[in-house]
């Protein structure tokens, strides 16, 4: 369970989060929508303890993230998988080594590492790319490697920062299917930050709209179209078939 309570964060006096509260139940997938610059990535980074709030707090399971000592935070992070908006692959390492790194650091034996890396690459459809460097593969492939790297440690919580942005529709759907399968097969709790309404509606159980530093709307996907909020409807415009 993730509980965000009254979160405030400003950068150099410019407020980004202003009293944001949100709860995410175990097994739930929540899609976070919001305009560019609204603070979606900042929100994710607070949950995983990469940023510290000015006020308010974040709970993950029974841990209060901003107050954890470093060791305890690292311990907690073993439950997390994080897909970065720009992949953030280690460019000095091959695809295989990128995925193996977190496992090796935890002392997982090599045969087990090999098995898990193959498994994660298979899930994202990238078998056979083990020996390529990030600079040798396309942006879309990098994103999928980013997803595989988040998966390889078998996390309980997955944070996706725009995993389908900039991908062609076929690859995007492949990632969508993957997110759905992970939810169904492994019961992973996920936060999906996205501009891609199609992806949000397919994958998420609930949609939340981040605006002016708070959660403006929070609705189950089934009720999205019947929610009269104008900003939410603006987002839905992007996928409505043109009627005229």
């Amino acid at each position: 369970m993730i509980r965000i309570e009254n979160l405030y964060k400003a950068f150099e006096g410019k407020p980004v989060l202003q009293g944001l509260s949100l709860e995410i139940a175990d097994g739930e997938t929540v899609a976070v929508l919001g305009k560019s610059g609204s603070g979606k990535t900042v929100l994710l980074k607070h949950i995983v303890g990469l940023l510290k709030p000015d006020r308010g707090t974040v709970w993950v399971d029974r841990y209060e993230v901003p107050r954890l000592k470093r060791r305890a935070l690292y311990e907690l992070r073993r439950r997390f998988g994080f897909v970065f908006q720009a992949a953030a692959l280690f460019d000095s390492l091959t695809v295989y080594e990128n995925l193996a790194l977190p496992l090796r650091d935890r002392g997982v034996p090599e045969p087990e590492i090999r098995r898990r890396v193959q498994e994660a690459l298979r899930r994202v459809g990238l078998e056979g790319s083990e020996n390529l460097y990030p600079s040798e593969i396309s942006g879309g492939m990098q994103k999928r490697v980013g997803v595989a790297r988040a998966l390889v440690t078998e996390p309980r919580y997955l944070f996706y920062d725009e995993p389908t942005t900039g991908l062609d529709p076929v690859t995007a759907d492949r990632i969508n299917d993957l997110m759905i399968r992970l939810k169904q097969e492994l019961g992973i709790t996920a936060v999906l930050v996205t501009h891609d309404m199609r992806s949000a509606l397919r994958v998420a159980d609930r949609l939340v709209l981040l605006s002016q530093g708070r959660i403006r709307v929070s609705v189950p996907v089934t009720e999205v179209f019947s929610t009269p909020d104008p900003e939410l409807q603006d987002f839905l415009e992007s996928i409505r078939p043109k009627t005229e």
């Binding site: 980074k45 995983v48 990469l50 690292y74 311990e75 992070r77 073993r78 997390f80 994080f82 970065f84 720009a86 953030a88 692959l89 280690f90 460019d91 790194l101 977190p102 650091d105 935890r106 440690t153």
Partner: peptide, 18 residues
């Protein structure tokens, strides 16, 4: 520096690698 600005250092943090 490149690892910092491309968030590779954050990625290490999140893998619980100091």
């Amino acid at each position: 520096g490149t690892m910092r600005v491309t968030e590779q250092i954050d990625a290490l943090e999140l893998m619980a690698i100091d």
